[in-house]
Amino acid sequence: MPHVVTENCTDCQFTDCVEVCPVSCFHGDGRRVYIDPVACIDCGACVPLCPVHAIYEDLDLTEERESWQELNAVRAPALPVVRKKQAPLAGAEARKASLGYS
Rank of each mutant, 00 (worst) to 15 (best):
M1K: 01
P2E: 05
H3F: 10
V4G: 09
T6N: 00
T6M: 13
E7G: 13
E7P: 06
N8V: 01
C9I: 05
C9T: 03
D11N: 10
C12Y: 00
F14K: 01
F14G: 04
T15G: 02
D16E: 11
V18G: 03
V18L: 04
E19L: 02
E19R: 05
V20R: 09
V20F: 05
C21P: 02
C21H: 00
P22S: 04
P22E: 05
P22R: 07
V23D: 06
S24I: 07
F26Q: 03
H27R: 00
G28P: 08
G28A: 10
G28C: 12
R31N: 14
R31T: 15
R31K: 14
R32K: 13
Y34T: 06
I35K: 09
I35W: 02
D36H: 01
P37S: 07
P37I: 00
P37L: 06
A39Q: 10
A39M: 12
C40N: 04
C40K: 09
C40S: 07
I41V: 13
I41K: 05
C43M: 05
G44Q: 01
G44D: 07
A45L: 03
L49P: 03
V52F: 04
A54P: 01
I55A: 01
Y56M: 08
Y56K: 08
E57Q: 11
E57C: 09
D58I: 09
L59H: 06
L59E: 12
L61G: 02
L61F: 06
T62S: 14
T62L: 06
T62N: 02
E63P: 09
E64K: 12
E66K: 15
S67A: 14
W68K: 11
W68A: 11
W68E: 15
W68L: 11
W68F: 14
Q69P: 08
Q69Y: 14
Q69C: 10
N72V: 05
N72R: 10
A73Y: 04
A73H: 03
A73S: 03
R75S: 15
R75N: 15
A76P: 11
A76D: 03
P77V: 06
A78L: 15
P80K: 01
K84F: 15
K85E: 11
A87D: 14
L89F: 06
A90G: 12
G91A: 05
G91P: 01
G91E: 03
G91D: 02
G91M: 08
A92R: 07
A92I: 00
E93W: 13
A94W: 04
A94I: 15
K96V: 05
A97Y: 10
A97S: 13
S98W: 09
S98N: 13
L99T: 00
L99A: 01
G100W: 03
G100A: 04
S102F: 08
S102Y: 13
S102M: 12
S102N: 14
